[in-house]
Nucleic acid binder design. Structure first.
Lengths: 199, 199
DNA sequence: CTTGGATTTAAACGGGTGTTCAGTTAAATC
DNA sequence: GATTTAACTGAACACCCGTTTAAATCCAAG
């Protein structure tokens, strides 16, 4: 068992994933070659295959990793009221996605480049995340706090609205991330017909 | 001037664009080859160059065409109230986008595959469309009908929310297109703090 | 029926693709 | 210092890429 301590694989492995994430987000999975990724890492193309069985799996692992991090980070306070939970969800979604623009971009844009089996896995994780929000909405409706015609539709509407932030928000722009979070909280609060959202 | 009547170009041209639209939407611009498009049309790859100078322009024309159609079809009733105009915008956006899923997909997903000049053109058209909605929101705020903290943010939030419909709505599903339009109208009405959106 | 231009083919161009693998390098263990 | 083995190179594999071009085909007009 040689080269366990000073091994480069501890360094090269993450660097491969970082380069792939950045390049896939920037140019798209199909438009990026293994040689481009390798060149970014400072290695020959063949060396990448020490870290991934193939290009498809490299994409899949990036997406699965992102979704797992998302689900792990999202822990709604079970003691909070539905309104507080909804508020927390909105702020969390905006902040978490803003911190990982490349991973977000890939997770939403490269789904069609996944093989069916991999697609199903990512899709399941995505639905799991949506369920977190839907449960909050259902709890609010049950408590008579929210007025939502269809919690499934409202869930998808809110998530689409929140995810859209990543396409235009720039930290050096007119509004701070906190401003944006505040505004979206108000809009979502009103959207679900919760009290406290009126004029 | 021979072959003006029985010319194939009247037939092949549209067929090229249809095939490209479908394939680009399904697999992504970078993942689709000119030979695939040609094969779909029933022609050799070289024949495509009678109808487009290159692959990039083919994509660009599809996107520009879609945006132009979108802007031409979007004519808010200048006599209507801001609330009625907003309602009309929501219903129009959902219906128009649902009728052209492939073009919508391309217009939102393939922006990064456009060369800078082409990107700027499409981006300008997109902003033109957003301005239609923002003007409605501004009119509503000026009339004291809407309560919106930031019309730009609200515009982007509403459009992201509406466009998201195309990713999940299926006409053979639980809800009809009309149901979805109704629900989004209510959610948007509440989101902008307009009267008539409360419980 | 010939003509001439629109339309398409077939082949070629230079270059890039994902992936494999024998061989080289270099670091950790004995 | 010899041995072991993870890490990497460099070349090759078979194939696909967008685009160009000369030649063939097709068909309305004269």
């Amino acid at each position: 068992m040689a080269r366990t301590a000073g091994s480069h694989s501890d360094i090269t492995g993450p660097r491969v994933r970082e380069a792939a994430l950045r390049l896939f987000a920037r140019h798209g999975f199909a438009a990026v070659s293994m040689r481009q990724i390798a060149s970014e890492v400072g290695v020959q193309a063949g060396a990448l295959y020490n870290y991934t069985p193939d290009k498809q799996t490299l994409l899949f692992e990036l997406m699965r990793n992102h979704m797992n991090e998302l689900l792990a980070a999202m822990r709604p306070d079970p003691a909070g009221s539905p309104s507080a939970q909804l508020d927390g969800f909105v702020r969390f979604h905006i902040a978490f996605h803003h911190a990982r623009p490349d991973a977000v971009f890939i997770a939403y844009m490269e789904l069609r480049n996944l093989e069916p089996e991999n697609f199903a896995t990512i899709e399941a994780l995505r639905r799991q995340y949506e369920t977190v929000l839907e449960d909050i909405l259902c709890a609010g409706v049950d408590a008579g706090l929210f007025d939502v015609a269809d919690t499934k539709v409202a869930t998808l509407a809110v998530i689409a609205m929140l995810t859209g932030v990543t396409t235009w928000f720039r930290p050096d722009g007119r509004l701070s991330l906190g401003d944006v979070q505040d505004q979206y909280c108000q809009m979502v609060t009103r959207l679900v017909g919760a009290p406290g959202g009126s004029v």
